[in-house]
Design a binder for these strands. Structure first.
Length: 472
RNA sequence: GGCGGGGUAGCCAAGUGGUAAGGCAGGGCUCUGCAAAAGCCUCAUCCGUCGGUUCGAUUCCGACCCUCGCCUCCA
């Protein structure tokens, strides 16, 4: 089934087709973190979204090369390095490691390449030189190099491909410090920022003098290096459309004269408890904050993955608690299927509901990643499996084939299935003591032990096959 | 002021010109000595408000109300 995606460039849902003549390889670039702090839940929505895109492409049979930059030099970083009296590398290294750890906790597949801006000065400088040579960039009297939107437009190029821009109506000056740099036009943006005393040790030599790259240039330089001058997909949060992505297009197309990216995908922001996230309101969460509250990365991933990526999503703690329940339901069902499938079997059978699952799931994702509809297919399947499990009408072979279908679906969802936690000896001893008490009809003692187990973090539930222990 | 999203059950959230998926919570039931974060069933005469088009609108059009985002820090 052909995968359809909403392309911000055309503002329409389009059938995705890779540039690769063989129709196999796909280049995917996602704007990564600026490592000046721990990433918050809003940032994570975007990265989980990127992970969904990558996994869906793989599920659709494509061979994806996933690139995500690490922006490790930028105004805010320099400011904090100065405030903390530390070095750039030490400061950014800490947050980069935290970011990659969190990414893993959310079960996002690691990008194949994670280039750092500071590791690509040569490429960045070469790209700027190219832009200067082509006449769309100029060095101002302050020593910084700027991109000229007027000259770029003069070459017949379009500035404002992602967002309708009306420079006359823009409230320039309201949130822009116009006096900071000596640009020819307010809309021009910095490619290379000349060294200033506040930069401390953070500067690199270049043909334009000592300084550091502007905000957008590293994405152009690194994506072109990793994926070529024209590539398939570029993702990011919706706020990056302008100016970041618009400027990336201008820099890249201005330098290469070729179309930069075929499909631009933008993820919507989220609200937390119905409000815009802010530290003041107390609804600003990093992944670490949520883990400290007892939630898992898997639960956060599930919740972030329940709504369509182009809709604002309301992230709530209540929703996160609900995610726990919903996942427990899937785990329970998959666990039962595993148990049944473990029984030796000879025949190969596939229940019809598996076909329905795969079919509905695939169709939902193909329709611009309709993940909500995809989940509906999963829960319909769970209900059907539970029913058949309960009435004992599922054969071990059918259970095994159901698990195969589930694994396939799970390669996209990435919520895994928690392995049954092995209970330690003391817990097992308690469970056994309870069974003994039960057999002796000493229910008071049995219940006391059950409470004790609960206090130790284990739930004991009786089943037809005897008591089962579950970690809370 | 310019541009662009939204308003669907207690909460979250899909969707359609022909009468509302799914999840959580709630209620009922089953299993159980009692239980369970176990299973099954149930849960929107209705989709922000008011008009219009239509045999028929939650879905299309218009107005209005509310809300969110971008407009050079931003996921």
């Amino acid at each position: 089934m052909a995968l359809k995606l909403f392309n911000s460039l055309t503002r329409a849902v389009q059938t995705f087709a890779p540039l690769d003549p063989a129709g196999k390889k796909v280049g995917l670039y996602c704007c990564g973190p600026t490592v000046y702090d721990f990433a918050h839940i809003g940032n994570w929505r975007t990265f989980v979204f990127a992970d969904l895109v990558r996994r869906t492409l793989a599920f659709s049979g494509y061979e994806v090369k996933h690139v995500m930059n690490i922006t490790d030099v930028e105004d805010k970083i320099i400011q904090r390095v100065r405030e903390n009296k530390t070095t750039l590398r030490e400061f950014t290294g800490k947050f980069e490691t935290a970011f990659l750890d969190d990414l893993k906790a959310l079960n996002c597949q690691a990008p194949h390449v994670t280039p750092r801006a500071t590791g690509h000065m040569a490429e960045i400088i070469a790209l700027i030189e190219k832009l200067v040579a082509r006449g769309v960039a100029y060095q101002a009297t302050d020593g910084s190099v700027y991109f000229s939107i007027e000259k770029y437009r003069g070459c017949g190029c379009t500035y404002g491909q992602l967002q309708k821009l009306n420079f006359d109506e823009m409230r320039v000056g309201e949130r822009v410090s116009t006096d900071e740099y000596e640009k020819e036009a307010v809309a021009d943006f910095a490619l290379w920022k000349a060294r200033v005393p506040d930069d401390g040790d953070v500067f690199w030599p270049s043909p334009f003098g000592e300084g550091r790259p502007g905000w957008h240039i590293e994405c152009s330089a690194m994506s072109i290096k990793a994926l070529g001058e024209t590539f398939d997909l570029h993702l990011g949060g919706e706020d990056l459309k302008f100016p970041h992505h618009e400027d990336e297009i201008a820099q890249s197309e201005g330098a290469t004269g070729k179309p930069f990216v075929k499909f631009w995908l933008h993820g919507a922001h989220l609200l937390v408890e119905g409000k815009k996230m802010s530290k003041r309101l107390g609804n600003y969460f990093t992944l670490r904050d949520l883990i400290a509250k007892g939630f898992t990365g898997r639960e956060v991933r599930y919740l972030l993955l329940t709504a369509h990526y182009r809709e604002t999503f309301n992230f709530t703690l209540e929703g996160l608690a609900g995610a726990k329940s919903a996942l427990a339901r899937i785990d329970e069902c998959v666990g039962k299927l595993r148990e049944l499938a473990a029984i030796p079997k000879s025949e190969v059978q596939s229940p019809k509901s598996n076909d329905a699952l795969i079919e509905k799931f695939t169709a939902a994702l193909a329709e611009d990643l309709n993940i909500s509809a995809a989940w509906a297919s999963v829960f319909e399947w769970v209900r059907e499996m539970n029913k058949r499990l309960a009435e004992n009408s599922l054969s071990p072979a059918e259970a095994a084939s159901a698990l195969t279908a589930w694994d396939k679906i799970n390669s996209v969802l990435g919520i895994g299935t928690t392995a049954e936690a092995e209970a330690p000896a003391d817990i097992l001893a308690l469970a056994e003591a309870r069974t003994t008490a039960k057999l002796a009809k000493d229910f008071k003692r049995a219940d006391t032990i059950r409470d004790e187990l609960k206090a130790k973090g284990w739930i004991i539930a009786d089943s037809p096959k005897g008591p089962k222990l579950k970690k809370i």
